Amino acid sequence: MDLSEHSTLRPPNKDCLPFSFTATSTGYYRLWLINMVLTVLTLGIYSAWAKVRTQKYLLGHTHFAGGRFDYHGRPWAILKGRLIMLAALLAWGLSESMPLLHGLIALLAVITAPWLAVQAMRFRLANTSWNQMRFRFDGKPARAYLTYAKSWLLLLFTLGLAWPWATLIKRRFLTQHSALGQARLAQQNCAGRLYLAALGGIFGALLYGIVLLLLGWLLRQGITGSGLADNILQQWGSLQTLFSLLSRAAGMAWLLASAGFWRALMTRALLNHTTLMLNGQSQRIEWWISSRMLLGLHFSNALALLLSLGLAWPWVRVRTLRAQFSQLALFSQQDLAQLQTSLHELDDARGDELADLLGLDLGW
């Protein structure tokens, strides 16, 4: 069944407030193609405007509890942030022959990471809305430094073995300071689930590897055992050249599928332990997509991207979002559409003005 065209049935529950995603592959493909052409023609400058158009399209087709999401980012602010990132990467690359300067740049990146995380979250949430209400992030840089220091020290003293707790320390800071009006997110402890998700990711990577090796062996046997070998020798010079190219392609497909599956398992564990606090009551978020579905989804996505040389990206992105949102819901006893809040306009919020001034939307 094509995941891009179907919507999985949700559990019948009157308290279930479902998400839905209504974008189409055709509509997104037109937008993506125009963005790509203009970005190339402007040597990358248009990429900031492309991001705004993409976010507005995708969020505009995301619905929840009778409301629609929207994006309000400013292209010039995004372009500023990307220029800062490019300048930092250029300085990093040019300083390789100067160890002292190289080390200072690396140290500066570590020192500013918590502050950048706060400003980026503030910018991102202030420019995202649901039902005409702006999200906001009210975390403070001082608290971010303390949080990140705890996380890094925990990783250091446990040689990385305590990464689930380190992840949760940072995740709690980011979620508990994310709000929409009176509603605020909270992250519950799920270290054990994160370990299980990691094991599942390893299992998925092994399974992908076995399947790709089997497909490669069957392809090799089919080529060498048929008359195709002579034609290939004329085109490629040797079978080894072709098999080497196919091996690299299979390795890339394995990496794409494994990374996507791993990230989805981690996200599922975290989301299923995230709650929405409103008026002293807790509403739980549930994402009940199965591991089997995720395995097939990311494997087929990787193959589609590989075989199309990346041209299938709009189809891959839309089908993935439709599959994810069709099985995501908030279970609540309250009507979130009746949230009483004032709009947090970007131009009227001091912290959001700072984020816009600095242009700290550093994501691509």
Rank of each mutant, 00 (worst) to 15 (best):
L156F: 14
L156R: 02
R124K: 09
L146Q: 10
S129G: 07
T128H: 05
S151G: 14
M133N: 10
T128V: 13
G139S: 03
M133L: 15
M121W: 04
R134P: 00
L155M: 15
R122S: 03
R134A: 14
L116S: 06
R143S: 14
R134W: 00
W115E: 01
R136K: 05
K140D: 11
R122A: 04
W130P: 00
V110C: 08
G139E: 02
A106I: 11
R124E: 10
L146P: 00
A149M: 12
L156E: 04
S151I: 12
Q132I: 03
A109G: 13
F123G: 00
R124D: 13
A126T: 04
M133P: 00
S129Q: 09
R143K: 14
A120W: 03
K140A: 12
A117C: 05
S129L: 02
M133Y: 07
A109T: 08
V118G: 03
F157T: 05
S129C: 02
P114V: 03
G160R: 12
T158H: 06
A142F: 09
W115R: 04
V118L: 07
G139M: 07
W152D: 01
Y148V: 15
Q132V: 05
L146G: 08
R143N: 14
G160A: 06
K150L: 13
L159R: 03
A106K: 09
L146F: 13
A117K: 05
T128M: 13
W152A: 15
R143T: 14
A144I: 08
L155R: 10
L161T: 08
T147F: 01
L155C: 10
L146A: 14
A113R: 10
A144W: 04
R136D: 10
A120M: 12
R143F: 06
G160I: 08
F135M: 08
A149W: 12
F137T: 01
A144K: 09
W130H: 05
R124F: 08
R122L: 04
S129A: 12
W115I: 06
L156C: 14
A109I: 11
L108R: 11
R134E: 05
R136M: 04
R143M: 09
F123E: 02
W152L: 13
L108S: 14
L159Q: 06
N127V: 01
S151K: 09
Q119F: 07
G139Y: 02
L116N: 04
F123L: 07
L154M: 13
F135G: 01
G139Q: 05
Q132S: 14
L161C: 11
D138L: 06
F157V: 14
L154I: 11
L146R: 13
T112L: 15
N127S: 03
T147E: 00
A142T: 13
A113H: 09
Y145H: 13
L154N: 10
L125V: 02
P141E: 03
L155P: 07
W152N: 04
N131P: 00
A149G: 10
A106Y: 08
A126E: 00
L116W: 13
T147Q: 01
L116Q: 07
R134N: 15
T158V: 10
V110I: 15
K150I: 10
R122N: 14
T112R: 11
F137H: 06
A113N: 07
L125I: 02
I111F: 12
R136S: 10
L116A: 12
Q119R: 12
A126P: 00
L107D: 02
L161P: 05
A144P: 06
G160Y: 11
L125S: 06
R136H: 07
F157L: 15
I111G: 02
